[in-house]
Write a protein that binds this DNA or RNA. Structure first.
Lengths: 206, 206
DNA sequence: GCTAAACGATACAGATCGGTTTATTTCTGT
DNA sequence: ACAGAAATAAACCGATCTGTATCGTTTAGC
Protein backbone atom coordinates (compact mmCIF):
# COMPACT_ATOMS: atom_id res chain seq x y z
CA UNK A 1 0.00 0.00 0.00
CA UNK A 2 1.48 3.30 -1.07
CA UNK A 3 1.70 6.28 1.21
CA UNK A 4 -1.22 8.16 -0.32
CA UNK A 5 -3.31 5.00 -0.23
CA UNK A 6 -2.79 4.64 3.49
CA UNK A 7 -3.87 8.19 4.04
CA UNK A 8 -7.00 7.62 1.98
CA UNK A 9 -7.69 4.37 3.75
CA UNK A 10 -7.38 6.08 7.12
CA UNK A 11 -9.74 8.85 6.09
CA UNK A 12 -12.31 6.37 4.78
CA UNK A 13 -12.09 4.27 7.91
CA UNK A 14 -12.35 7.29 10.15
CA UNK A 15 -15.35 8.60 8.23
CA UNK A 16 -17.11 5.28 8.49
CA UNK A 17 -16.56 5.12 12.24
CA UNK A 18 -17.43 8.77 12.83
CA UNK A 19 -20.64 8.17 10.95
CA UNK A 20 -21.38 5.05 12.93
CA UNK A 21 -20.43 6.13 16.46
CA UNK A 22 -19.82 9.86 16.39
CA UNK A 23 -16.62 11.83 16.89
CA UNK A 24 -15.98 11.70 20.62
CA UNK A 25 -17.08 8.09 20.90
CA UNK A 26 -14.67 6.99 18.19
CA UNK A 27 -11.21 6.55 19.69
CA UNK A 28 -7.91 6.58 17.89
CA UNK A 29 -7.29 2.99 18.93
CA UNK A 30 -10.49 1.85 17.21
CA UNK A 31 -9.63 3.74 14.05
CA UNK A 32 -6.18 2.20 13.72
CA UNK A 33 -7.51 -1.27 14.58
CA UNK A 34 -10.20 -1.04 11.91
CA UNK A 35 -7.77 0.42 9.41
CA UNK A 36 -5.19 -2.27 10.25
CA UNK A 37 -2.49 0.31 10.77
CA UNK A 38 -0.05 1.17 13.54
CA UNK A 39 -0.63 4.19 15.72
CA UNK A 40 2.67 5.66 14.60
CA UNK A 41 1.46 5.56 11.04
CA UNK A 42 -1.71 7.46 11.81
CA UNK A 43 0.19 10.16 13.67
CA UNK A 44 2.67 10.48 10.85
CA UNK A 45 -0.17 11.40 8.52
CA UNK A 46 -2.18 13.51 10.96
CA UNK A 47 -0.79 15.56 13.81
CA UNK A 48 -3.84 15.27 16.04
CA UNK A 49 -7.24 13.68 16.11
CA UNK A 50 -8.73 17.03 15.25
CA UNK A 51 -6.58 17.19 12.14
CA UNK A 52 -7.89 13.78 11.16
CA UNK A 53 -11.46 14.92 11.69
CA UNK A 54 -10.90 18.05 9.64
CA UNK A 55 -9.27 16.13 6.81
CA UNK A 56 -12.08 13.59 6.87
CA UNK A 57 -14.75 16.29 6.74
CA UNK A 58 -12.96 18.06 3.91
CA UNK A 59 -12.81 14.85 1.93
CA UNK A 60 -16.45 14.00 2.50
CA UNK A 61 -17.44 17.56 1.67
CA UNK A 62 -15.93 17.37 -1.78
CA UNK A 63 -17.11 13.85 -2.39
CA UNK A 64 -20.67 14.57 -1.27
CA UNK A 65 -21.02 17.68 -3.39
CA UNK A 66 -19.46 16.05 -6.42
CA UNK A 67 -21.74 13.05 -6.10
CA UNK A 68 -24.82 15.21 -5.78
CA UNK A 69 -23.81 17.33 -8.76
CA UNK A 70 -23.24 14.22 -10.86
CA UNK A 71 -26.49 12.64 -9.77
CA UNK A 72 -28.45 15.77 -10.59
CA UNK A 73 -26.79 16.68 -13.86
CA UNK A 74 -27.17 13.28 -15.43
CA UNK A 75 -30.90 13.21 -14.74
CA UNK A 76 -32.17 16.47 -16.11
CA UNK A 77 -30.88 19.68 -17.60
CA UNK A 78 -33.77 21.88 -16.54
CA UNK A 79 -32.62 23.94 -13.57
CA UNK A 80 -35.98 23.84 -11.82
CA UNK A 81 -36.15 20.09 -12.14
CA UNK A 82 -32.58 19.92 -10.93
CA UNK A 83 -33.58 21.64 -7.74
CA UNK A 84 -36.22 18.98 -7.26
CA UNK A 85 -33.97 16.09 -8.21
CA UNK A 86 -31.67 16.98 -5.33
CA UNK A 87 -34.35 15.41 -3.15
CA UNK A 88 -34.10 12.18 -5.11
CA UNK A 89 -30.42 12.26 -4.30
CA UNK A 90 -31.29 12.67 -0.65
CA UNK A 91 -33.55 9.67 -0.91
CA UNK A 92 -30.70 7.49 -2.12
CA UNK A 93 -28.73 8.55 0.94
CA UNK A 94 -31.57 7.68 3.27
CA UNK A 95 -32.00 4.27 1.66
CA UNK A 96 -28.44 3.32 2.53
CA UNK A 97 -28.68 1.24 5.69
CA UNK A 98 -25.51 2.92 6.92
CA UNK A 99 -27.25 6.29 6.94
CA UNK A 100 -27.12 7.78 10.42
CA UNK A 101 -27.73 11.42 9.71
CA UNK A 102 -25.56 14.13 8.22
CA UNK A 103 -21.99 13.89 9.45
CA UNK A 104 -21.62 17.67 9.23
CA UNK A 105 -24.66 18.27 11.39
CA UNK A 106 -23.31 15.72 13.85
CA UNK A 107 -19.88 17.36 13.71
CA UNK A 108 -21.44 20.71 14.54
CA UNK A 109 -23.52 19.04 17.24
CA UNK A 110 -20.43 17.65 18.93
CA UNK A 111 -18.36 20.81 18.49
CA UNK A 112 -20.81 23.56 19.25
CA UNK A 113 -18.39 26.39 19.75
CA UNK A 114 -18.59 28.57 16.64
CA UNK A 115 -14.84 29.16 16.89
CA UNK A 116 -14.08 25.42 16.83
CA UNK A 117 -12.39 24.43 13.56
CA UNK A 118 -14.63 21.38 13.29
CA UNK A 119 -17.74 23.51 13.63
CA UNK A 120 -16.40 25.89 11.02
CA UNK A 121 -15.67 23.04 8.64
CA UNK A 122 -19.24 21.87 8.99
CA UNK A 123 -20.56 25.36 8.34
CA UNK A 124 -18.34 25.67 5.29
CA UNK A 125 -19.81 22.51 3.79
CA UNK A 126 -23.33 23.76 4.32
CA UNK A 127 -22.44 27.07 2.74
CA UNK A 128 -21.07 25.34 -0.33
CA UNK A 129 -24.18 23.19 -0.68
CA UNK A 130 -26.28 26.32 -0.38
CA UNK A 131 -24.14 27.94 -3.06
CA UNK A 132 -24.98 25.06 -5.38
CA UNK A 133 -28.68 25.58 -4.78
CA UNK A 134 -28.21 29.26 -5.50
CA UNK A 135 -26.47 28.36 -8.72
CA UNK A 136 -29.44 26.24 -9.77
CA UNK A 137 -31.99 28.80 -8.63
CA UNK A 138 -30.16 31.47 -10.56
CA UNK A 139 -30.09 29.31 -13.68
CA UNK A 140 -33.82 28.77 -13.23
CA UNK A 141 -34.22 32.54 -13.40
CA UNK A 142 -36.19 32.88 -10.23
CA UNK A 143 -36.76 36.45 -9.20
CA UNK A 144 -35.12 35.81 -5.81
CA UNK A 145 -32.67 32.97 -6.33
CA UNK A 146 -31.10 33.35 -2.88
CA UNK A 147 -34.44 33.02 -1.17
CA UNK A 148 -35.38 30.01 -3.26
CA UNK A 149 -32.05 28.36 -2.54
CA UNK A 150 -32.45 28.97 1.17
CA UNK A 151 -35.88 27.39 1.03
CA UNK A 152 -34.61 24.31 -0.76
CA UNK A 153 -31.78 24.16 1.73
CA UNK A 154 -34.15 24.33 4.68
CA UNK A 155 -36.21 21.52 3.22
CA UNK A 156 -33.05 19.45 2.78
CA UNK A 157 -32.00 20.00 6.37
CA UNK A 158 -35.48 19.17 7.57
CA UNK A 159 -35.59 15.95 5.59
CA UNK A 160 -32.17 14.94 6.88
CA UNK A 161 -33.08 15.66 10.49
CA UNK A 162 -36.35 13.76 10.27
CA UNK A 163 -34.75 10.84 8.46
CA UNK A 164 -32.03 10.67 11.10
CA UNK A 165 -34.72 9.87 13.62
CA UNK A 166 -37.17 7.80 11.61
CA UNK A 167 -34.53 6.01 9.54
CA UNK A 168 -36.89 5.98 6.59
CA UNK A 169 -36.65 7.51 3.12
CA UNK A 170 -40.07 9.12 3.28
CA UNK A 171 -38.85 12.55 4.45
CA UNK A 172 -37.03 12.95 1.14
CA UNK A 173 -40.21 12.40 -0.85
CA UNK A 174 -42.19 14.62 1.45
CA UNK A 175 -39.66 17.42 1.17
CA UNK A 176 -39.72 17.04 -2.59
CA UNK A 177 -43.49 17.40 -2.69
CA UNK A 178 -43.22 20.52 -0.53
CA UNK A 179 -40.51 21.93 -2.78
CA UNK A 180 -42.61 21.21 -5.85
CA UNK A 181 -45.52 23.05 -4.31
CA UNK A 182 -43.42 26.03 -3.31
CA UNK A 183 -41.62 26.34 -6.63
CA UNK A 184 -44.90 26.01 -8.51
CA UNK A 185 -46.23 28.97 -6.58
CA UNK A 186 -43.12 30.96 -7.44
CA UNK A 187 -42.63 30.59 -11.17
CA UNK A 188 -45.99 29.23 -12.50
CA UNK A 189 -44.01 26.59 -14.39
CA UNK A 190 -41.99 24.86 -11.78
CA UNK A 191 -43.77 21.54 -11.92
CA UNK A 192 -42.03 19.20 -14.39
CA UNK A 193 -45.28 18.27 -16.15
CA UNK A 194 -46.45 21.88 -16.36
CA UNK A 195 -47.66 23.52 -19.52
CA UNK A 196 -44.92 24.92 -21.69
CA UNK A 197 -41.26 24.25 -21.03
CA UNK A 198 -38.28 26.56 -21.16
CA UNK A 199 -40.09 29.60 -19.84
CA UNK A 200 -37.84 32.48 -18.88
CA UNK A 201 -38.22 35.21 -16.33
CA UNK A 202 -40.45 33.48 -13.85
CA UNK A 203 -42.60 35.89 -11.92
CA UNK A 204 -42.20 36.43 -8.23
CA UNK A 205 -45.11 36.13 -5.89
CA UNK A 206 -44.78 37.91 -2.54
CA UNK B 1 -31.40 22.37 49.69
CA UNK B 2 -33.99 19.62 49.87
CA UNK B 3 -33.54 16.29 48.24
CA UNK B 4 -35.85 16.96 45.30
CA UNK B 5 -34.21 20.35 44.81
CA UNK B 6 -30.81 18.73 44.46
CA UNK B 7 -32.14 16.37 41.85
CA UNK B 8 -33.68 19.25 39.95
CA UNK B 9 -30.52 21.28 40.24
CA UNK B 10 -28.47 18.38 38.94
CA UNK B 11 -30.78 17.93 35.98
CA UNK B 12 -30.70 21.62 35.15
CA UNK B 13 -26.93 21.75 35.42
CA UNK B 14 -26.52 18.64 33.31
CA UNK B 15 -28.88 19.98 30.66
CA UNK B 16 -27.01 23.25 30.49
CA UNK B 17 -23.69 21.48 30.06
CA UNK B 18 -25.02 18.91 27.59
CA UNK B 19 -26.40 21.78 25.55
CA UNK B 20 -23.12 23.66 25.72
CA UNK B 21 -20.61 20.86 25.17
CA UNK B 22 -22.52 17.76 24.13
CA UNK B 23 -23.03 14.49 25.94
CA UNK B 24 -19.72 12.66 25.56
CA UNK B 25 -17.70 15.82 26.06
CA UNK B 26 -19.46 16.60 29.34
CA UNK B 27 -17.88 14.55 32.11
CA UNK B 28 -19.40 13.63 35.44
CA UNK B 29 -16.68 15.58 37.22
CA UNK B 30 -17.64 18.76 35.41
CA UNK B 31 -21.31 18.28 36.17
CA UNK B 32 -20.77 17.86 39.90
CA UNK B 33 -18.30 20.75 39.99
CA UNK B 34 -20.76 23.08 38.26
CA UNK B 35 -23.61 21.84 40.40
CA UNK B 36 -21.52 22.23 43.55
CA UNK B 37 -22.30 18.72 44.66
CA UNK B 38 -20.31 15.67 45.69
CA UNK B 39 -19.97 12.75 43.34
CA UNK B 40 -21.64 10.44 45.82
CA UNK B 41 -24.66 12.68 45.80
CA UNK B 42 -25.03 12.49 42.05
CA UNK B 43 -24.76 8.72 42.08
CA UNK B 44 -27.35 8.49 44.82
CA UNK B 45 -29.84 10.21 42.54
CA UNK B 46 -28.81 8.55 39.28
CA UNK B 47 -27.35 5.08 38.85
CA UNK B 48 -25.30 5.85 35.77
CA UNK B 49 -24.48 8.75 33.49
CA UNK B 50 -26.94 7.32 30.98
CA UNK B 51 -29.67 7.46 33.59
CA UNK B 52 -28.83 11.10 34.17
CA UNK B 53 -28.99 11.79 30.44
CA UNK B 54 -32.34 10.02 30.14
CA UNK B 55 -33.79 11.88 33.11
CA UNK B 56 -32.52 15.18 31.73
CA UNK B 57 -34.03 14.52 28.32
CA UNK B 58 -37.33 13.50 29.85
CA UNK B 59 -37.43 16.69 31.85
CA UNK B 60 -36.59 18.91 28.91
CA UNK B 61 -39.10 17.06 26.77
CA UNK B 62 -41.98 17.92 29.07
CA UNK B 63 -40.76 21.43 29.69
CA UNK B 64 -40.23 22.18 26.01
CA UNK B 65 -43.61 20.90 24.92
CA UNK B 66 -45.40 22.65 27.78
CA UNK B 67 -43.65 25.90 26.98
CA UNK B 68 -44.51 25.67 23.30
CA UNK B 69 -48.14 24.84 24.08
CA UNK B 70 -48.39 27.79 26.43
CA UNK B 71 -46.71 30.14 24.00
CA UNK B 72 -49.02 29.09 21.19
CA UNK B 73 -52.28 28.97 23.10
CA UNK B 74 -51.96 32.40 24.63
CA UNK B 75 -51.41 34.02 21.25
CA UNK B 76 -54.24 32.75 19.10
CA UNK B 77 -57.09 30.31 19.25
CA UNK B 78 -57.33 29.64 15.53
CA UNK B 79 -55.76 26.23 14.86
CA UNK B 80 -54.25 27.26 11.54
CA UNK B 81 -52.66 30.30 13.08
CA UNK B 82 -51.48 28.16 15.94
CA UNK B 83 -49.58 25.98 13.51
CA UNK B 84 -47.88 29.11 12.21
CA UNK B 85 -47.23 30.59 15.65
CA UNK B 86 -45.12 27.54 16.52
CA UNK B 87 -42.49 29.13 14.29
CA UNK B 88 -42.58 32.28 16.39
CA UNK B 89 -41.86 30.05 19.33
CA UNK B 90 -38.90 28.63 17.44
CA UNK B 91 -37.68 32.14 16.82
CA UNK B 92 -37.60 32.88 20.54
CA UNK B 93 -35.43 29.79 21.01
CA UNK B 94 -33.03 30.86 18.30
CA UNK B 95 -32.73 34.35 19.80
CA UNK B 96 -31.41 32.91 23.05
CA UNK B 97 -27.65 33.27 22.93
CA UNK B 98 -27.36 29.90 24.62
CA UNK B 99 -29.06 28.21 21.67
CA UNK B 100 -26.79 25.55 20.25
CA UNK B 101 -29.25 23.40 18.36
CA UNK B 102 -31.84 20.89 19.46
CA UNK B 103 -30.60 18.79 22.36
CA UNK B 104 -32.66 15.84 21.12
CA UNK B 105 -31.14 15.97 17.67
CA UNK B 106 -27.72 16.18 19.28
CA UNK B 107 -28.60 13.29 21.58
CA UNK B 108 -29.58 11.18 18.59
CA UNK B 109 -26.44 12.33 16.80
CA UNK B 110 -24.23 11.12 19.62
CA UNK B 111 -26.17 7.90 20.20
CA UNK B 112 -26.90 6.72 16.71
CA UNK B 113 -27.84 3.15 17.46
CA UNK B 114 -31.63 2.94 17.18
CA UNK B 115 -31.64 0.51 20.13
CA UNK B 116 -29.82 2.99 22.37
CA UNK B 117 -32.14 4.29 25.12
CA UNK B 118 -30.89 7.82 24.54
CA UNK B 119 -31.71 7.61 20.85
CA UNK B 120 -35.13 6.27 21.69
CA UNK B 121 -35.76 9.06 24.16
CA UNK B 122 -34.93 11.59 21.47
CA UNK B 123 -37.26 9.87 19.01
CA UNK B 124 -40.02 9.83 21.60
CA UNK B 125 -39.76 13.59 22.07
CA UNK B 126 -39.99 14.18 18.35
CA UNK B 127 -43.00 11.91 18.12
CA UNK B 128 -44.77 13.84 20.86
CA UNK B 129 -44.05 17.15 19.16
CA UNK B 130 -45.39 15.70 15.92
CA UNK B 131 -48.49 14.55 17.80
CA UNK B 132 -49.08 18.13 18.90
CA UNK B 133 -48.89 19.33 15.31
CA UNK B 134 -51.34 16.61 14.34
CA UNK B 135 -53.64 17.79 17.08
CA UNK B 136 -53.55 21.31 15.68
CA UNK B 137 -53.89 20.15 12.07
CA UNK B 138 -56.85 18.04 13.04
CA UNK B 139 -58.49 20.96 14.82
CA UNK B 140 -57.90 23.03 11.71
CA UNK B 141 -59.92 20.45 9.79
CA UNK B 142 -57.37 19.84 7.11
CA UNK B 143 -58.23 16.97 4.84
CA UNK B 144 -54.96 15.21 5.64
CA UNK B 145 -53.96 16.36 9.13
CA UNK B 146 -51.15 13.83 9.43
CA UNK B 147 -49.54 15.02 6.23
CA UNK B 148 -49.89 18.65 7.23
CA UNK B 149 -48.38 17.94 10.62
CA UNK B 150 -45.47 16.09 9.05
CA UNK B 151 -44.86 19.07 6.77
CA UNK B 152 -44.87 21.52 9.66
CA UNK B 153 -42.57 19.17 11.53
CA UNK B 154 -40.15 18.97 8.63
CA UNK B 155 -40.04 22.74 8.42
CA UNK B 156 -39.34 22.91 12.16
CA UNK B 157 -36.49 20.46 11.89
CA UNK B 158 -35.10 22.30 8.91
CA UNK B 159 -35.21 25.64 10.70
CA UNK B 160 -33.53 24.15 13.76
CA UNK B 161 -30.77 22.53 11.73
CA UNK B 162 -30.06 25.69 9.75
CA UNK B 163 -30.17 27.87 12.85
CA UNK B 164 -27.73 25.52 14.59
CA UNK B 165 -25.18 26.41 11.93
CA UNK B 166 -25.95 30.03 11.22
CA UNK B 167 -26.82 30.97 14.81
CA UNK B 168 -29.40 33.41 13.55
CA UNK B 169 -33.16 33.61 14.02
CA UNK B 170 -33.88 34.03 10.32
CA UNK B 171 -34.56 30.32 9.61
CA UNK B 172 -37.60 30.51 11.89
CA UNK B 173 -39.09 33.36 9.88
CA UNK B 174 -38.25 31.68 6.61
CA UNK B 175 -39.85 28.43 7.69
CA UNK B 176 -42.92 30.35 8.79
CA UNK B 177 -43.25 31.98 5.40
CA UNK B 178 -42.94 28.58 3.74
CA UNK B 179 -45.53 27.12 6.07
CA UNK B 180 -47.88 29.99 5.37
CA UNK B 181 -47.51 29.40 1.66
CA UNK B 182 -48.09 25.68 1.95
CA UNK B 183 -51.09 25.96 4.25
CA UNK B 184 -52.62 28.62 2.04
CA UNK B 185 -52.43 26.23 -0.88
CA UNK B 186 -54.14 23.54 1.17
CA UNK B 187 -57.23 25.07 2.62
CA UNK B 188 -57.81 28.37 0.77
CA UNK B 189 -58.08 30.21 4.05
CA UNK B 190 -54.89 29.37 5.86
CA UNK B 191 -53.36 32.84 5.78
CA UNK B 192 -54.30 34.82 8.91
CA UNK B 193 -55.36 37.87 6.93
CA UNK B 194 -57.35 35.84 4.44
CA UNK B 195 -60.92 36.58 3.49
CA UNK B 196 -63.49 35.15 5.85
CA UNK B 197 -62.57 33.59 9.14
CA UNK B 198 -63.87 30.48 10.85
CA UNK B 199 -64.27 28.49 7.69
CA UNK B 200 -64.82 24.81 8.24
CA UNK B 201 -64.02 21.82 6.09
CA UNK B 202 -61.04 23.13 4.23
CA UNK B 203 -60.62 21.59 0.84
CA UNK B 204 -57.75 19.33 -0.04
CA UNK B 205 -55.60 20.03 -3.02
CA UNK B 206 -53.62 17.10 -4.31
C1' DG C 1 22.21 -2.86 -3.64
C1' DC C 2 22.39 0.87 -0.68
C1' DT C 3 20.16 4.58 1.95
C1' DA C 4 16.44 6.62 3.93
C1' DA C 5 11.92 6.90 4.74
C1' DA C 6 7.84 4.66 6.17
C1' DC C 7 5.93 0.87 8.13
C1' DG C 8 4.19 -2.41 12.22
C1' DA C 9 4.21 -3.65 17.04
C1' DT C 10 4.41 -2.49 21.61
C1' DA C 11 5.13 -0.14 25.66
C1' DC C 12 4.45 3.94 27.87
C1' DA C 13 3.08 8.66 29.44
C1' DG C 14 -0.22 11.59 31.79
C1' DA C 15 -4.82 12.89 31.83
C1' DT C 16 -9.50 11.83 32.15
C1' DC C 17 -13.28 8.72 31.96
C1' DG C 18 -17.38 6.58 34.73
C1' DG C 19 -18.02 4.74 39.00
C1' DT C 20 -16.93 3.01 44.09
C1' DT C 21 -15.41 3.29 48.71
C1' DT C 22 -14.60 5.31 53.13
C1' DA C 23 -14.97 8.30 56.70
C1' DT C 24 -16.97 12.53 58.43
C1' DT C 25 -20.44 16.00 58.78
C1' DT C 26 -24.95 17.94 58.20
C1' DC C 27 -29.59 17.69 57.78
C1' DT C 28 -34.45 16.04 58.87
C1' DG C 29 -38.43 13.80 61.14
C1' DT C 30 -40.34 12.36 65.23
C1' DA D 1 -32.66 15.26 71.49
C1' DC D 2 -31.66 11.58 69.05
C1' DA D 3 -31.55 8.20 65.08
C1' DG D 4 -31.21 7.52 60.37
C1' DA D 5 -30.66 9.27 56.12
C1' DA D 6 -28.15 11.99 53.10
C1' DA D 7 -24.89 15.24 52.37
C1' DT D 8 -19.67 16.19 51.91
C1' DA D 9 -14.60 15.58 50.53
C1' DA D 10 -11.15 12.76 48.98
C1' DA D 11 -8.87 8.82 47.85
C1' DC D 12 -9.16 5.25 44.81
C1' DC D 13 -10.38 1.79 40.95
C1' DG D 14 -9.65 -0.04 36.31
C1' DA D 15 -10.42 1.36 31.81
C1' DT D 16 -9.78 4.43 28.22
C1' DC D 17 -8.29 8.67 26.21
C1' DT D 18 -4.77 11.23 23.00
C1' DG D 19 -0.27 11.29 21.98
C1' DT D 20 4.92 9.79 22.23
C1' DA D 21 8.94 6.91 22.27
C1' DT D 22 11.42 2.77 21.06
C1' DC D 23 12.79 -0.52 17.96
C1' DG D 24 12.90 -3.76 14.55
C1' DT D 25 11.30 -4.70 9.62
C1' DT D 26 9.70 -3.58 5.18
C1' DT D 27 9.72 -0.91 1.22
C1' DA D 28 10.89 2.50 -2.41
C1' DG D 29 14.02 5.47 -5.14
C1' DC D 30 18.40 6.48 -6.83
Amino acid sequence: MRRSEIRDHLLETALRLFNQYGYHATGIDLIIAEAGVAKTTLYRHFDTKEDLILAALERRDEEARDTMREFVEQRTSDPVERLLVTFDFLETLFRDERFRGCIFVSAAGEHKDTADPVFRAAVLHKRLVLAYFEELAHAARFAEPKRIAAEINLLHEGAIAVAQMTRTAEPARQAKRMATQLLAAEGQAAAPSARREGASHRAQVS
